[in-house]
Amino acid sequence: MWLLAAIIAIPLIEIALFIMIGGWLSLWPTLALVVGTAVAGISVVRLQGRLALLDLRRAVDEMRDPAAPLAHGALLLMAGFLLLMPGFLTDAIGILLLIPAFRTFVMRQVATRVKVTRVETRGYARPARDQIIEGEYHDAADEPDRGEKRPTHRPSGWTRH
């Protein structure tokens, strides 16, 4: 029910804000403000998105839980979407989502409503970086030539050039 209310309320709020701000600034400055916030917001989202991706890679490399970098990245995607939508309310929410402290606050609020379960894998152990794994190998180039491999069936014709 709350989703239906949001779908109805957000466009109405945006229209009201356009009318109020357009009456105060006039048409062209209002449109320039909407387009300017979208362009500036998207450039900031691209920069912070790269930083979030680097943080995610670092978390995976260090074998840390990647949930926080993934959540930051998802909220940055939402910020970019909101900034692309024309309107002042969506721009304000998108700009708030660009602030790392606000994203952390949103993640904490969502975390209070989410139950996390973990799946334990048994029998699989990833070796430590300094652990030595012994084994044998042979170089295929040193083996004697056993002749050319020949097909055991007639070609179908699909690979003919």
Rank of each mutant, 00 (worst) to 15 (best):
A52R: 03
L54A: 15
D55C: 03
R57K: 10
R58H: 12
R58L: 08
A59R: 05
A59P: 10
D61N: 14
E62N: 13
M63H: 14
M63E: 14
M63K: 14
M63Y: 13
R64Q: 14
R64T: 04
A68R: 00
A68G: 01
L70W: 00
A74R: 06
A74F: 05
L75F: 01
L75N: 00
L75P: 01
L76E: 01
L76Q: 04
L76G: 03
L77R: 05
L77V: 01
M78R: 00
M78N: 05
A79Q: 02
A79H: 03
G80Q: 04
G80R: 02
G80L: 06
F81G: 11
L82Y: 07
L84C: 10
P86W: 04
G87E: 05
F88E: 03
F88Q: 08
F88L: 13
L89T: 04
L89N: 08
A92P: 07
I93D: 12
G94H: 10
G94L: 08
L96F: 15
L97N: 13
L98G: 12
A101F: 09
F102L: 12
R103N: 11
T104K: 15
T104D: 13
F105I: 04
M107L: 12
R108H: 13
V110A: 15
V110E: 06
V110H: 07
T112Y: 08
T112R: 14
T112V: 07
R113D: 06
R113I: 01
